[in-house]
Design a protein around this nucleic acid. Sequence first.
DNA 1: CGGATTAATGCGGAACCCGTAATAAAGCGG
DNA 2: CCGCTTTATTACGGGTTCCGCATTAATCCG
Lengths: 404, 404
Amino acid sequence: MKTADPELMRAINRFHVMDAVRRFGPIARVEISTRTELSPTTVSAITAALLEDGLIVPRQMGDLRDAARGRPRVLLELNPEAAQVVGVKLAPDRITVVLTNFRADVLAQLALPIRLSRQAAAVVADLVEDGIRQCVADAGCPLENVRGICVGLPGVVEHGAGICRQSPVFTESDVPFATELSRRLQRPVSIDSDANLVALAESWFGAARGLDDFLVVSVEHSLGLGIMHKGELFRGAGGLSPDLGDMLVRPAGRTDGTRLADIASEAALLIEAQAVLTAPEDQQLFRAGRGLGRVLALAEAGDARMTGLLGEAGEALGFAIANLIALFAPPKVILAGALIQEGAPLLDALLRTVAALLPPSLAGVAEIVTHRSTDTIWARGAAAMTLQELYGAPWNTTGPALRA
Amino acid sequence: MKTADPELMRAINRFHVMDAVRRFGPIARVEISTRTELSPTTVSAITAALLEDGLIVPRQMGDLRDAARGRPRVLLELNPEAAQVVGVKLAPDRITVVLTNFRADVLAQLALPIRLSRQAAAVVADLVEDGIRQCVADAGCPLENVRGICVGLPGVVEHGAGICRQSPVFTESDVPFATELSRRLQRPVSIDSDANLVALAESWFGAARGLDDFLVVSVEHSLGLGIMHKGELFRGAGGLSPDLGDMLVRPAGRTDGTRLADIASEAALLIEAQAVLTAPEDQQLFRAGRGLGRVLALAEAGDARMTGLLGEAGEALGFAIANLIALFAPPKVILAGALIQEGAPLLDALLRTVAALLPPSLAGVAEIVTHRSTDTIWARGAAAMTLQELYGAPWNTTGPALRA
DNA sequence: CGGATTAATGCGGAACCCGTAATAAAGCGG
DNA sequence: CCGCTTTATTACGGGTTCCGCATTAATCCG
């Protein structure tokens, strides 16, 4: 926690005003005042500064007071033109790039279906750089206008330092990807765990709007875990984002095959399924990257081997999620990913396991919902991360108050 | 996060000054200024107010500057007399009460070796009330002078609401213990998970002094987990303290006996050991409450059944701790409890399991140490919790900034 | 006993929030 | 059409805070 001075005070209150404008859409000063519990005078002063800076704009039309007497309110909203930011999602089979405006509306997007599992960091950086340049070019937006870039990727990411400790997309460990991209593009770049970004997206414009505490669990090629805790993205000590794949699901005593990623990720499932489905036409499908569809179709048709695999994965996920609920007590858990479907064996097993394992005292706390997130939403979350910094959340900039 | 006003600003900075005095005191104003990065003027003003309020006192003696030139510094320290607080630790076999001064020095303590597993809340409240009254009477301190009371107990505790959701010491669930005690004693009362309090104690005057991130795992009659995260005690959504006993250690598919508490707590170990050691003299020891010593002695002597049990418990604990390290990435993990001994089978198995299960990217982050905490230290932690509130940490008082 | 040196503190300036009062911009009723 | 009422917004003054600068305080040194 930083020491307080008038500047910080103003930064805090300005952020609250910005946050109210973002969340409650076109909104009048009076309403900002009641919501933030700041005095009308202060709101007026702050909004004047924000208007001056071009971050918000008035919107005369649409006066929908119930009692239409008195001076009409002037509605304020975010100025979409105030900034452009870029969000990138890196997955092992795809790069998604979006350019958004200041409201996180997508202006342009680009999906590169490129297989980049375990690539050299330089190669990935090349691809991302090209993708970003092309995306902003498509939108006719000079790169210089882009106020910030955020990249989401699976694995263990250190947001603060901009280092990716370990990820399925890189061969190397400890990749300083943020500095590398920043050097290439001459723009501010940050990186974060992909699941954290989708958590932010869900909180801004998704299934968890306005919720201060929730989990996002994504089952994709790899597993993702995003945690919103007390209104902020949860990160471990040193800003290290935890990786759901590193959660353990086997009992002690067996040191092999214990990571959740080895049981419940798409990648792991495909490997196990490929070992089982030995028919040549199946193998063909796997080689063509269509194995997942085949697995789901077989499970749908009642193939015991496939439902068994999916059930095992679901049980493992349920086990991990029950642990997370015991720790974070989130009112909501959002599940995402192609494997998560209503009525599918994986989801059934997951829900059943959570219900069975959760202690009675925590039985009711978490509502588990599914939500289909597109790659665009993920990338929008990345954009939102940069926007949040532009809004100027002051507590992110705080250093240790006492030096040893 | 609360909206900022001058009052909050001052509260924040006053807290920083108090914190510096507590941590580094006796300390001169100049040094407070450099450590907090507040201007000397501001420090002077704040310390003047604190002196006025009697929270700190000057200490002329002991001028140990290296260069003894210039005006000598006036050292400031906490005024021990500024307040008295009571800390209570509730364990299934013992109630410990301490009275401390403003520096968390113990003025009087009282240990009641009472078995209170699964007692009615009213009975426990009776015992605690009597214990507190007796303890403060022993010290000749009128109860009216006690500025606050904090009770630590195992189980799932909701600190904010003062409710104990579930605990081995109560028969009931959802016990509003804080209000109940407050009504009886007419003093402010708070409750928290016992492990959180020992974490606070370790951070104030124990093995984790000044550390912003660490875990405390205590293996006692029941299991405890205290998490210091970014300088604050970690609690789940709604202020719910997680319970280590609710962590799960068995794989999905087996829904029975999966809680860590059923494998690795002293209580569970005793039950399992009692089932194995059928000799009449052993059963005698168990009934006399001396079973644990017997188990340890047998294990020491190489009894395979006992080392097996302990090893299994250690592996289960290691499994849970590895998961927690993956989530929180704490630089330090402190283990406490009678079962945790250097060279003992439980600790060996625990360390081995953590090392085996932790993914390489997290291999070096956490140093695991053991630390023997007495019941007094725990109760001191409870006192420290109240003191922290008296110091006026402003962020604890913040409500939601935006009302829906 | 007069510098030199370091510690602590008035003093004035600047920024901020807030309460009150004034102003702005509508609708309503005569 | 015009004044009155109502509601939103803003100007103004007061109070608080932090900070930079200059001053005072307290010691050592020669």
